[in-house]
Design a protein around this nucleic acid. Sequence first.
DNA 1: CCACAAGTTGACGTTAACGTAAACGTAATT
DNA 2: AATTACGTTTACGTTAACGTCAACTTGTGG
Lengths: 133, 133
Amino acid sequence: MASSKPKHVEKSYLIRELAEEFNVTTRTLRFYEEKGLLKPSRIGATRVYSAADRTRLKLILRGKRLGLSLDESAEIILMYDPVGTNSKQILTLIDAIQDKRLQLEKQKQDLEQTLEDLQRAEQRCVESLKHIH
Amino acid sequence: MASSKPKHVEKSYLIRELAEEFNVTTRTLRFYEEKGLLKPSRIGATRVYSAADRTRLKLILRGKRLGLSLDESAEIILMYDPVGTNSKQILTLIDAIQDKRLQLEKQKQDLEQTLEDLQRAEQRCVESLKHIH
DNA sequence: CCACAAGTTGACGTTAACGTAAACGTAATT
DNA sequence: AATTACGTTTACGTTAACGTCAACTTGTGG
């Protein structure tokens, strides 16, 4: 057995692969990189995205669906990583996390309210259909 | 009793009042009007906003907090009003409402997922604080 | 009457989040 | 060698959602 045994080869992706999987353009991925949201490694000049990059992209896109800006998503992503190691930094981070959670809770209430409104609107439509007969 | 008795005088608002109440600029209110989202009446040249305008503004802003574009909010607002009166229009509207509801349900799931993630992140922070002691 | 506040309509500036195009390198296929 | 299919960087264009003037009119108190 001359070859070494890599226990767990991390999956990596080319820009085109990620782009297609998540239905974004390659331009978008490069743009996210410019903004510091993704840090693919390189083979020569070609970008190679790690599983971590993929996850972060997922988070960015989820953020977008929530109406967050890229900067906001960036903040959240930083919250997931253990960035600071001393107590003060961690306390600051906890604060930031709680802030974001409050904001999202508020958003959730707006969302639920809107859903209720839409349900009532639909109900009224159905009713008015009945009366037209 | 010479004076007539108005049973229910609808409240009306000046641009400044609405702006302050909702913490937007007057420029914003005029902008929404340009886009057809608000239709204040006029006394001379001065805009006078009705209670209905106020409600619509509320909906627009709630939409914004959800990350909706103005156009999307406009759509939703139209859904609340009974715009079309014949069966076909109503059926079309019901479809649109259901579409929007599906979209928002999806968004709600993203939101709940993110909230869970943040909760775990916070938990990890607290843990690492314990270990630092 | 006159200042001053608050209203109005343009018209141009700004930021975010990409799109689009030019001009080029590289690797495999024909 | 030439075409095709990717990749790269650099740079300018675009849309949404306002901000920021400038230049005006209108209403009110001193």
